[in-house]
Design a protein around this nucleic acid. Structure first.
Lengths: 219, 219
DNA sequence: AATCAACTGTACCGGCGGTTTGGTTTTCAC
DNA sequence: GTGAAAACCAAACCGCCGGTACAGTTGATT
């Protein structure tokens, strides 16, 4: 009962690493069980087929990411009452979290799955899509909150800015991997942070007053 | 001789579509040849093994993208002498090119490959990395050129901004796919375009004088 | 003592995956 | 139109892979 969950978790961990390194199609159950030190029967005791493994991987990933975002947004709000400031703090925390990993970010399961969509049933795809929508909604809410205090620059749709953050993260992971430089992701998140600063503090980008929403000043 | 190149091209086209839909590992040669209407032997006449197919796909993709960037940057320079203006035009062209595809952007091969790196030898990975570096260099050059005329905002490294564009494209493709909305990519490129506008025209984002590099003005 | 979760072990299957060998047709230069 | 090279076909190979079936074992729980 408890040992079962432990084994299941080990399988998922190994499978996730394999999926992020070779893709789902090239991830063989036989390899996974070899590394996990169990038999094939053991695997099929936990997952009735490979598709259920995919589903479990997706759910696990979404849950874990939700947790991280919960935490990091919460910390941001803890450290400042000003919505802009707290979002900037959140972004910095995320940059540290994702950029300082020893071997770089392990990879985004959503990204892999969207590039192998034909391998999964609609269920899995829906989980992914809902998760992305939820995260984008989170960012958009943060931006809207900021916009009630600071006038946003014209010309940029806040919905697009929210999605752009997801793009920068997923793109940053790809760039980090492709270029073989783990620092890229952290730098990209910080660059996006600068964009947010620009967006909401056009006249005085470096001076920020957490309490007073005075934004228009001479440069 | 000529027919050979034709068949080869057909194989590559089919294989690319499959790779972008299922991943390289899950792309079977049998499927490809079935769709191409040739036999297995025919396939192996053109590619000595699956890895060479990967290499050929990568080379083809890089070449094609180089061509597109050449064209679109050239057009941008044609339509304005001002480096900022021409880059903004280039971005708009790209947004149209990539955002108006009937079924959305087919996908970025580089992205798929970086998420299946364990399947390819160093050769293929190097081709991808070099291509990415080259494209990033292109963007950075454009930004540097702009910066000689317009003072860039402080706080953002132009190298990071250049890479961010790649991130936005790759991330935008993933978001478009994941959310099932082809328009996202185009919107993201336009959003990035707005970022560029903000970055180089802090005081008067909407009024741009192509000839005169006067940037500091009242808001 | 009985029950249940959590496995192991073995044996099997059909299918596909990439690959090879050896032969056949098509194309084109001359 | 012929000969050589290019472009392909046919068939077979072997190993792996996902999946099934089922009987048996272990350890904790009740």
């Amino acid at each position: 009962m408890r040992k079962g969950a432990e084994t299941r978790e080990r399988i998922l961990e190994i499978a996730e690493a394999s999926v992020l390194a070779k893709g789902f199609g090239a991830t063989s159950i036989e390899e996974v069980i070899a590394e996990a030190g169990i038999t094939k029967s053991g695997f099929f005791y936990h997952f009735k087929d490979k598709n259920e493994l995919a589903r479990a991987l997706m759910l696990r990933y979404v849950e874990e990411n939700d947790r991280i975002f919960d935490e990091v947004f919460h910390r941001g709000r803890q450290l400042s009452d000003d919505p802009l400031q707290s979002f900037l703090i959140t972004l910095k925390l995320l940059a540290e979290l994702m950029g300082d990993l020893p071997n770089g970010h392990p990879g985004c399961l959503i990204a892999t799955f969207t590039y192998q969509e034909r391998l999964f049933d609609r269920n899995v795809r829906d989980i992914a899509a809902d998760a992305v929508r939820s995260w984008n909604g989170r960012f958009r809410d943060a931006l809207n909150e900021i916009a009630t205090v600071y006038p946003a620059r014209k010309g940029m749709d806040l919905d697009d800015v929210a999605i752009m953050f997801s793009c920068v993260i997923d793109g940053g992971i790809i760039m980090s991997r492709g270029l073989g430089d783990p620092r890229v992701l952290g730098r990209q998140i910080l660059a996006f942070r600068s964009v947010i600063k620009m967006l909401f503090a056009p006249a005085a980008p470096d001076i920020m007053l957490p309490t007073a929403p005075t934004a228009i000043a001479a440069e």
